[in-house]
Design a protein around this nucleic acid. Structure first.
Lengths: 339, 339
DNA sequence: ATGAAAGCGCTAACAA
DNA sequence: TTGTTAGCGCTTTCAT
C-alpha cells in the first residue's frame, strides 16, 4: 500500500480506505488508487491485515485423512456450503498419521485459523487443550474427541451396526462374520457394539473367531474374509465395517467362487454398490448433512456462542440392494443340490 | 511472547530465541521460558512471524474440485509426500466453480502461500498474471494453463485416447461411442483427439452422432449411453472419457440388459473396476507420480529456479480386464443365435 | 475527505 | 548470553 500511496501522492490510510471499500474518499482518489493498484498488480497482504485487526482471519481448518471414499467428498461439500455462506475459506489439510494430525492441527492454529473441524485419526487429542484455552473453537466430526471436551457431530454407528446385524439375522443367518479397521477408532467400536447387541438380542452367543479387526485396506480385508471362509464352520453372512473392507470382502468372495452366495451388508455407501452382482446392501448416513452441521456448530462457536460441548448424532439407514437379502434357507438348499 | 518475557523478566527477543531453538540462551532462561510458555498455552503467531521475516510462510496451496474419484486421493498423496519432505504444509481449497476457483486462488495468494498447485476448472486463468508478476510460483496439474504461462504436469491424454480406441478397433469394433464431459476441459479434447486419430488411422470416417459430450455426472452419462444405444445403428463399443461417465455407462448397459454385450473402455481407473462383471478395461496413469512431480516443480520454483515454463507429460497405460476385449465377431454370432 | 501516529506479534541487525 | 531498535504491511484512533 505504501507503494500505491507514494505513486498517487497520498497516505497509506487513504489507499487502505479505497481498497477496503470504506467510505470517505473522493471519487478522484478512489479512481487513481484503483488504477495504480491494478497497474502494480497489488494484492493485499492478509497476514498483515489479520495481524493489525487482531480479529478473524476468515479461514477455518478442516483436518482429515484424504481418501477416495465418498465420505470425504460429501463431508467437504457440506462444510464448504456452510462456510461459503459465512464468507469463510476452508483450508483442508491432511493427517495420514497421528503425528501428522498433531502437527497439522498445531500448524493451522499457529496460522490463526478462526476454528477447526477435525476428523481425528489419533487416539488422543489432549494436546488440543492448549488451543482451546487460547480460545480456538474446535468441532469433531464422525469421531468424538478424546482428552478434550469439544463439540462433536457423529453418526449413530451403534444403531447402524444394530440395523445391519438385525437385517442379516432376519434373513436366517446365525453365523455372521465381521471385518473392520482398528478398534482404536471410535466408529469401529460402536459398530461392533451394535453387532454384539443384535446378536445378544437374538439369544445367540457371539463367536470371537467371526470377528476380524485391525484390518486396514482392502487387500487386508480380502485376506481376512478368506480366513473366515476357511474356518471349519464359516460365516454365512458378513458385516463389513467400512466401504474399503466391503470392497476387499467382495474380492475375497470372487476369489473363493462364492460371489452372491454369502450374504453381505457393508457400512457406508460407495459409488458402484448398485452395479455389482448382487448389488450391495449398505448401512449409510447423510454425510453432506454431517458436514453442514459440523460447520454450523463451528461458526456458532466462532461467533461467540458458549456453553457446554454439544453432541449431535445423525441417524443411519439401511439400503437393501440384494447382497444383504440372501436368505439362509436358500443357501442351504442350494448347497444340498450341488452335493 | 511479550507475556512470557514479562513473567520471566527478560526481553521478547530472548523468548523468541528459545521458542525458535536459536542458540544463545542460558539453560536456565531456556527452561523458564519453556515452562511459562507451556503454562500459558502459548502458540506462536505465524502470521506475525511470516510478516516479520518477509520470507516463506511454509505453506503451499492446492486448488481443485473435490470428488470421490481416485484422482484426488492419489494426487494429494503425491503432493503431500513431496511437501512433507520440504517441511511445508499443503492447504487444499475447493473450486467447485469458475468463480470459486478464482476467489480461492486469490484468497490463498492474499494469505501469502509460497506457491500454488492448480487443477484448473475454469477456462481462463488470465487473472493469475498479476500473481505471477508479484512472484507467486504457479504449477498447473492435469490441465494446462490458459491465459498465463506456467509450469504444467499433465498426462498423455491424447495417447490414452489413442490406446483405448485402437484397442477397441483391434477387437473388431467399427462403431465406437464416446461419452465425456465438457470440451472446455483440456483433457476431454485431448482424449477425443486421440480417439479421432485412431479412427482415421483405421481408415474409418468418424460419425459425430457417436460422440456425446458435455455430459456431467453419472446420471447424465447413463442417459447419454441410453441415447446412443437407441440409435438406428448403435455402437458396439464405448469409450468413456472419465470414471464418472464409465459408471454411468455401466448403469445404462444394465438398464438395457446389455451388460457385457457392448465392449467398453474407460479413462481413469476406479476402485471396483476389477469386481464388476465383466471387469472394466481402463486407460490409466500414475496420478501419485503426477502429484509428486507437480510438487517438485513447485518447490523448485519456490526455491528460486527460473527459466521458461516447463511441461511434463506422463504416459498412460491400458489395463485390459475384460470389458474392452469383447470381440465384435462374437457379438454378432450371439446376436444371430438369439434371433 | 484525508492524514499522522501508534501498534498488531514477531524477527533482523546490531549493540552491550 | 542478552537487550535495543526498527520495521514487516496493515488498521485503528484521533486529528485536521
Amino acid at each position: 500500500m505504501q507503494d500505491i500511496a507514494d505513486r498517487v501522492g497520498i497516505s497509506t490510510k487513504s489507499v487502505s480506505r479505497v481498497l477496503n471499500g470504506e467510505p470517505g474518499t473522493s471519487a478522484r482518489t478512489t479512481e487513481r488508487v484503483l488504477a495504480v493498484a491494478r497497474e502494480l498488480g497489488f494484492r493485499r497482504n492478509d497476514l498483515a491485515r489479520s495481524l493489525a485487526r487482531g480479529d478473524r482471519t476468515g479461514t477455518v481448518g478442516l483436518v482429515l485423512r484424504h481418501s477416495s471414499t465418498r465420505f470425504y467428498e460429501n463431508l467437504i461439500r457440506g462444510v464448504d456450503e456452510v462456510a461459503d455462506a459465512h464468507g469463510a475459506l476452508v483450508l483442508t489439510a491432511g493427517s495420514h498419521s497421528e503425528d501428522r494430525e498433531r502437527s497439522t492441527l498445531l500448524a493451522l492454529s499457529s496460522r490463526r485459523v478462526d476454528g477447526m473441524l477435525i476428523v481425528p485419526v489419533g487416539r488422543d487429542q489432549t494436546y488440543l487443550r492448549a488451543e482451546q484455552a487460547i480460545g480456538m473453537p474446535l468441532v469433531f466430526v464422525d469421531r468424538p474427541p478424546s482428552g478434550v471436551a469439544a463439540d462433536a457431530v457423529l453418526a449413530d454407528d451403534r444403531g447402524g451396526g444394530l440395523l445391519a446385524t438385525r437385517h442379516l439375522l432376519k434373513h436366517g443367518h446365525r453365523r455372521i462374520g465381521v471385518v473392520g479397521a482398528s478398534t482404536s477408532v471410535h466408529t469401529v467400536n460402536e459398530r461392533i457394539a451394535g453387532y454384539d447387541a443384535a446378536i445378544a438380542e437374538a439369544g445367540l452367543t457371539g463367536d470371537p473367531r467371526l470377528v476380524q479387526l485391525d484390518v486396514e485396506g482392502s487387500a487386508a480385508a480380502r485376506a481376512a474374509v478368506l480366513r473366515l471362509l476357511a474356518e471349519p464352520s464359516p460365516p454365512t453372512a458378513l458385516f463389513l465395517l467400512n466401504s474399503v473392507c466391503t470392497i476387499g470382502a467382495l474380492r475375497a468372495l470372487d476369489d473363493a467362487g462364492l460371489a452372491g452366495q454369502v450374504a453381505l451388508v457393508g457400512f457406508d455407501d460407495f459409488d458402484t454398490a448398485d452395479l455389482l452382482t448382487p448389488a450391495v446392501t449398505v448401512v449409510a448416513h447423510d454425510i453432506v448433512e454431517m458436514g453442514r452441521r459440523a460447520a454450523a456448530r463451528l461458526f456458532a462457536r466462532i461467533g461467540g456462542e458458549d456453553g457446554a460441548p454439544a453432541l449431535d448424532v445423525l441417524p443411519t439407514t439401511l439400503i437393501p440392494r440384494g447382497s444383504g437379502e440372501l436368505v439362509r434357507a436358500r443357501q442351504v438348499a442350494r448347497a444340498r443340490r450341488s452335493r
